[in-house]
Amino acid sequence: MTSGKIEQQSCDLGDVERWTFDRFISGSLIGSTLIELSPEMIRLWKLIYGSEHLKDGMPRGLAQVIIMSAYTRAVKPRPPGNLHIGQYIKMHSVPKVGEQMSCEVVCVDKFKKKGMSIVIFEVDVAMMSTNALLFTGRLTISWAG
């Protein structure tokens, strides 16, 4: 499901030191990873949410799962207890089953608000073969450490 080379780039940094609020730099690339839209992902989605209304191809909601997967792979290790407090997703296009997607995770902002340490990440997911943008996500996380 992942490219060893690109995933390794994410792991090299993340495995050495846990991500803390202080380590994030606004505007910096955190990491990149490859994700394949596998039949197993679609099977699990249908198992959880049902499938009677779905046509063939990717259920649109899987976009948020792919965005979350890219985030969890690129930003690690994370402190336990982080809270996901907001999300934005923009759909541009839908990949085909078996398509490789290139995902880039950027820390776009961080700030303190009402006693919480907030980090905002943007995830761009593009088709590996053409580099065409598939979907964009913005995650707002209350960082625990």
């Binding site: 949410y49 209304h53 779905l54 259920p59 909601g61 948020q64 799962v65 979350m68 996901h84 999300q87």
Partner: peptide, 18 residues
């Protein structure tokens, strides 16, 4: 997971907008 709950909205959208 927050995304698990959020998936329901996509499900509603896909069901309704076909």
């Amino acid at each position: 997971h927050g995304s698990l709950s959020m998936g329901l909205i996509w499900n509603s959208a896909e069901k309704s907008l076909l």
